[in-house]
Simulated assay, not measured.
Amino acid sequence: MNMDRWNANRETAPDSYGEAEQWFVRLLEPDCPAEERAAFERWRNADPAHAAAYRELELVWRQSLDATKHPAVAAAARQSLRPEPQTRSPRRWLFPALATGFAALVAVVVVPRWLAHSSEPVSATYTTTAGQQQTVQLSDGSSIVLDTDTQVSVRYSASTRRVDLLHGQAQFSVHGNHAWPFVVHALHGTVTAVGTQFQVRVNDGCTDVALIQGKLAIATEPQNGTPHDASLVGGQGLAYDESGRISRVHAIDPQDVQAWTEGKLFVHDWRLSDLIDEMNRYSTTKLQIGDPSLRDIRISGVFHTNDQQTFLALLQQGWSIQAKRVDANQIVLTHNR
């Protein structure tokens, strides 16, 4: 869409297009509250003309991302950010000033305040320690639940919402925006989402992806190896390794994969060694198998990740296992003979 068409539409439906401009700017601000986003959804759903105007504005955004590097655009953005008289509304400054600055360009460009001030993306890092979980509310209405011993780096730019999962496990609930993809980078691969809920876990050189609802695109970017790609729909999962290989898509149980967000593990016929590895992630006191014959004991049940004492009591009562503390941070498991 060029500027002439946008202006023509704005003249025929000034209310819808003018309001769409204002909503677009508000939603790009990093401090836009959840209640304002809810008000936007009510506005968009109240009238098909509202939804049509906003769709066209998103198209303008997509078509104009490359134009933001043009000197005229930068000059217009700087002009638009100058203080205005108090009698003017603070929400009306953006589009008139930008349109004046690059009338010769094909596209109209929207430059929010937080991007116009710097060429660098807005970024933040969030970290949890052993046994800690944290929910992070992001500026676009998305959220991340960090599991124990997890670190993510969030970098939002004009073209993409990027999250790097450096280690650990996280659940992502993504606010949909087709013009602004949400991309999780984990090891040598990416997971791209629009309006979905999913989990990504980095573990011993392997990345596990579980999709609770929506759709996902996965692409591997190995340093040595062949890139691959795959897609998921709700209720599916896969894994990829550092060489770029992607596993076969498999079914997941959304209740099982979300159990850790409630401090639980749903265990179905796990080896004891695998269960202990998982429980150890949530505690600074580590459990160690001292008798190799215990490793392949099969266990099922529901365990609380933050309750190591009850977990040990169940092992001792149900499987004749003895737990002996050998120092402040280590407990050794042996057969109770």
Rank of each mutant, 00 (worst) to 15 (best):
N9S: 13
R10M: 13
T12G: 04
V25N: 04
L27V: 15
P30S: 13
P33W: 00
P33N: 13
E35F: 05
A38W: 00
F40H: 15
W43E: 10
N45E: 09
A46E: 10
H50W: 02
H50C: 02
A53Q: 05
Y54P: 02
E58P: 01
E58A: 07
V60A: 15
S64Q: 02
S64K: 02
D66F: 00
D66A: 14
H70I: 01
A75F: 03
A77N: 11
R78K: 14
R88S: 08
P90K: 06
W93Q: 12
F95E: 01
P96E: 04
P96S: 07
T100R: 11
R113Q: 09
S118D: 14
S118N: 11
S119E: 15
T129H: 09
A130D: 12
A130M: 11
Q133S: 14
Q133F: 02
V136H: 06
S139M: 05
I144A: 15
I144W: 00
R155I: 01
T160E: 13
R162M: 06
A170G: 14
S173D: 12
S173C: 09
T192M: 05
A193G: 06
V194A: 09
R201V: 07
V202Y: 05
G205N: 05
T207P: 07
A210L: 02
A210Y: 01
L216R: 11
E221N: 15
G225T: 11
A230V: 00
R245I: 08
P254I: 15
D256P: 01
D256K: 14
V257Q: 09
T261I: 08
L265W: 01
R271E: 13
L272K: 12
T285R: 06
K286I: 03
F303V: 13
F303T: 14
H304W: 06
N306K: 10
D307I: 01
D307L: 05
T310R: 13
T310W: 00
L312H: 11
L314Y: 00
Q316L: 01
Q316E: 12
A323Y: 00
A323T: 09
R325G: 14
N329I: 05
V332L: 14
